[in-house]
């Protein structure tokens, strides 16, 4: 049995006490738990972020397994519950809270305004734009790290992080859209999720530039 103390010591041995303490006290929200969100949540949980709030209305489907961090046994379960359970298997000492609901313009401020950083990890362009616009105009203390353009297997090096303003970052290649001919695939989606997760770590540790 691994104790909380032993787990913390291990994280401190890897990240240093200063960084560990910052991450341990952080509250981060993730909107959408597909290829982006499930990877972001796992990256941040492994990093020791103390509280993750994960939000998705959907259930795990067999077509998610090509890129999302779920197992065969998760099919049919709510993504929030499946992911929270998965996180507990490798880091039982962080707090994971969730909302299993569809995010709308109306409920987004209530769900996300208490979080200093929100990762937008939705699938549809309209939902991405809705969340970014809503949080930027209605939640003045929240920074949003969004994603756009990560389908297919074009060059990895096209995926970038861009800072649009002090509260709005966007990761991706800006153009590779999901379509009939271009599917979302595990490596590039994870690459984009890693950009988002790393930007979270940078902001938390006081590095707001990309």
């Amino acid at each position: 049995m691994i104790t909380h103390n032993a787990y913390e010591k291990a994280l401190i041995s890897r990240h240093g006490k200063k960084v560990h303490d910052i991450l341990k006290n952080a509250d981060i929200a993730i909107a959408g738990l597909g290829g982006l969100g499930s990877n972001i949540a796992i990256f941040l949980a492994r990093s020791g972020v103390g509280h993750l709030h994960i939000v998705d209305f959907d259930k795990v489907d067999i077509t998610n397994l090509n890129r999302q961090q779920y197992d065969i046994d998760d099919i049919g379960k709510l993504k929030t519950i499946a992911l929270a359970t998965h996180i507990k298997h490798f880091n039982p000492f962080i707090k994971v809270t969730y909302d299993s609901i569809m995010v709308t313009e109306r409920n987004a401020p209530k769900i996300f305004s208490n979080y200093p950083i929100v990762c937008e990890a939705f699938d549809k362009a309209e939902n991405k734009a809705m969340l970014v616009n809503t949080l930027l105009t209605e939640c003045s203390n929240t920074k949003i790290i969004s994603a756009s353009g990560m389908a297919g297997f074009e060059s990895s090096n096209m995926i970038q992080t861009r800072k649009v303003n002090d509260r709005f970052y966007i990761c991706g290649d800006t153009q590779s859209e999901i379509s009939k001919n271009t599917a979302l695939m595990a490596p590039r989606v994870a690459l984009c999720a890693a950009h988002q997760a790393n930007m979270v770590l940078r902001i938390l540790t006081g590095n707001e530039e990309i």
Binding site: G32, G34, G35, L36, G37, A121, F122, D123, K124, A125, E126, K128, A129, V132, S146, A147, S148, G149, M150, A151, V164, F168, I170, T174, Q175, S176, E177, I178, L184, V189
Partner: peptide
């Protein structure tokens, strides 16, 4: 003026 366009996928 910045117009940020989103494309689908996630």
């Amino acid at each position: 003026i910045e117009v940020v366009s989103f494309v689908g996928g996630g």
